[in-house]
Design a protein around this nucleic acid. Structure first.
Length: 574
DNA sequence: GGGCCCGCAGGG
DNA sequence: CCCTGCGGGCCC
């Protein structure tokens, strides 16, 4: 079939492109068919997306297709030979403006904002770049004789077709600077890694919502179900970031003068005093903000008050032993009296305080008053050593799952002493695995750690993360999940482990920290036989900053650090 | 700090 | 019941 008949957005084109890509990546017919099936399901959506984009830009889609076909080159192939290039990592203005982020309800798009952009890059299918790399010895010269440089005769039928279809081959070298590992990785067996990434890899762009009927007039676009599923954070209104929940049943069922409440009224337990102190501090913050609303960030008295409140919230999270009666007595879950006064949309509290008070709020809302950081974890004594496991009783009482996109129920900076605890709270789904996902849905969450000798790179908002090593030209399950996410563009929760390299400024002091949602912007195939892929992730916009370093907002909090350390000591004794 | 090796949870 | 895996305790 001639190239010109493969129009972007057409079923024919997509089928062929996805077929070739899948064949190249997976090799085996069974896996291939799976990929195709999933991809085909997305095609209607894809067509709508293209039509919507064209409509918004006022572009004649037919003319655009013709133009594209006549060029017959990769739209993403623009070279900077010395640096790492990732497919679609440097989106053009057009791509950026059409991303779900820009099109979400947060940023209503009007025609005038896009009138001048070029349609060329607005194709449905993007292509990977062409690269060859030398990981460990950037300064070394030519490829040695024994290094594998695949040529066309080694390619499969599908690969050859693919290469013909897409872009030319201009093999380039580049070196990778890893701020974690530096050049020390020499010790590894794999001195030199070469790879051929010369075939275009069609990638479904992250889904964007179709245009509403009235969009010609610049009305807001309505996200589809699929959009909100893949990238839920992009469609969350500010007001819904920390939604105030309806008062839970257990809370409302407690009558103000029942027996327990009367006891509290008489006894005034210490925990109640702590809650009252917390409320009191909220009130003083509010007063101060009322006075100096314009210069609140510079008011030293107010900053002091925020610190005091932080301290109270952090202490409550770890050490405050409340029960449902005390919580109810203090009316701490009430919108008008309690924690929602901090995190509600229209307040001026710092974002870290909002987040941390919301974490506490959510736990109490679901009637979990176990402030022990190891709640839900039981230690069993084996013949040789003890081991931790999830307590089935706690699990059934507070069931969670990690099989979801986004980070509903988590806050940026949330910390856990162990990876098992991240599973307990549904932040991650594997007690040891770094990647948790699903064959069809891609990755939901990943853990960044130093273990395993992976050649990762961490720049905070952008990450290079390696898939696990496969064998016999077959990628592992986990790697396939990441590849699927690269196609879907879904949001992935990123958790950093204290096991990261000490030089990494984003490393949590101890334990594990949730640092926000990222999406995969591209990947490189580093080793063909072992199917080692290195994924480039970027942090989704609009989230709070990563809470690293030494400042009031950073986590784990001092209380968490002390507690985790003391637990480790205890563990050694037990 | 590195290596051994025993584990866990989840998925096929 | 098998397998995988960016933990982790414990030994040196």
């Amino acid at each position: 079939m001639p190239n010109t008949e493969r129009e972007p957005g057409s079923r024919d084109f997509l089928e062929q492109a996805q077929h070739d890509a899948a064949r190249q990546r997976y090799g085996t017919p069974g896996a291939l068919q799976d990929v195709i099936n999933v991809m085909m399901a997305d095609q209607d959506q894809a067509k709508r997306v293209n039509a919507a984009k064209a409509a918004m830009l006022g572009v004649d889609i037919d003319a655009t297709v013709e133009k594209w076909a006549s060029k017959n080159t990769s739209v993403f192939h623009h070279g900077t030979p010395q640096s790492v290039r990732w497919p679609a990592s440097n989106p053009t203005a057009t791509e950026k403006d059409l991303s779900p982020a820009a099109l979400g309800p947060k940023h209503d798009v009007t025609m005038s904002e896009h009138g001048a952009t070029s349609p060329e890059t607005d194709m449905h299918v993007g292509y990977s770049s062409t690269t060859q790399m030398d990981v460990s010895s950037p300064e070394s010269g030519e490829l040695t004789g024994d290094s594998t440089t695949p040529n066309e005769s080694e390619m499969s039928d599908g690969q050859v077709r693919n290469a013909n279809m897409g872009a030319r081959s201009s093999i380039q070298r580049f070196s990778l600077n890893t701020n974690n590992d530096g050049p020390k990785k020499e010790k590894g067996k794999r001195k030199r890694v070469t790879f051929l990434d010369d075939m275009p890899i069609p990638t479904l762009l992250p889904a964007t919502p179709p245009v509403a009927e009235s969009s010609r007039l610049g009305a807001a676009r309505v996200p589809t179900e699929l959009d909100t599923q893949l990238a839920p954070s992009l469609f969350v209104q500010q007001a819904e970031r920390y939604p105030v929940e309806p008062l839970p049943k257990w809370y409302e069922d407690i009558k103000p003068n029942n027996l327990e409440m009367n006891k509290i009224r008489k006894k005034r337990p210490q925990a109640l005093n702590s809650l009252e102190a917390l409320k009191n501090c909220i009130g003083r913050c509010e007063d101060k903000m009322m006075q100096r609303s314009n210069v609140q960030s510079k008011n030293p008295k107010l900053l002091e008050l925020f610190d005091e409140l932080r301290n109270l919230v952090h202490k409550a999270e770890i050490y405050l032993p409340v029960d449902k009666y005390i919580v109810r007595f203090a009316r701490i879950l009430h919108k008008e009296n309690g924690l929602p006064r901090i995190f509600q949309e229209d307040t001026q509290f710092p974002s870290d305080l909002k987040a941390d008070s919301y974490q506490l709020y959510l736990r109490w809302i679901r009637e979990d008053f176990e402030q022990n950081v190891l709640r839900g974890i039981i230690t069993v004594k084996g013949p040789n050593r003890g081991s931790d496991r999830l307590d089935p009783k706690y699990r059934s009482k507070y069931p969670t799952t990690a099989k979801y996109y986004g980070d509903k129920g988590l806050i940026i900076g949330q910390c856990w002493p162990s990876q098992l605890c991240t599973v307990r709270d549904g932040a991650h789904g594997s007690s040891q695995g770094g990647i948790f996902g699903d064959k069809d849905k891609g990755a939901y969450s990943i853990v960044l750690s130093g273990g395993g000798g992976y050649n990762d790179q961490d720049n905070g908002d952008s990450i290079v993360y390696s898939g696990t090593d496969g064998q016999d030209f077959t990628p592992t399950e986990a790697t396939q999940q990441m590849l699927r996410s690269a196609e879907l563009g879904n949001e992935i929760r990123v958790i950093r482990s204290a096991n990261l390299h000490r030089d990494n400024q984003y490393r949590p002091v101890i334990g594990f920290r949730y640092d926000g949602l990222y999406t995969i912007k591209g990947f490189e195939l580093v080793d063909k036989e072992k199917q080692i892929h290195r994924f480039k992730l970027e942090r989704c916009p609009g989230q709070d900053e990563i809470r690293y370093g030494d400042n009031a907002a950073s986590r784990p909090t001092q209380y968490e650090i002390d507690e985790y350390k003391s637990l480790k000591v205890k563990h050694r004794w037990a």
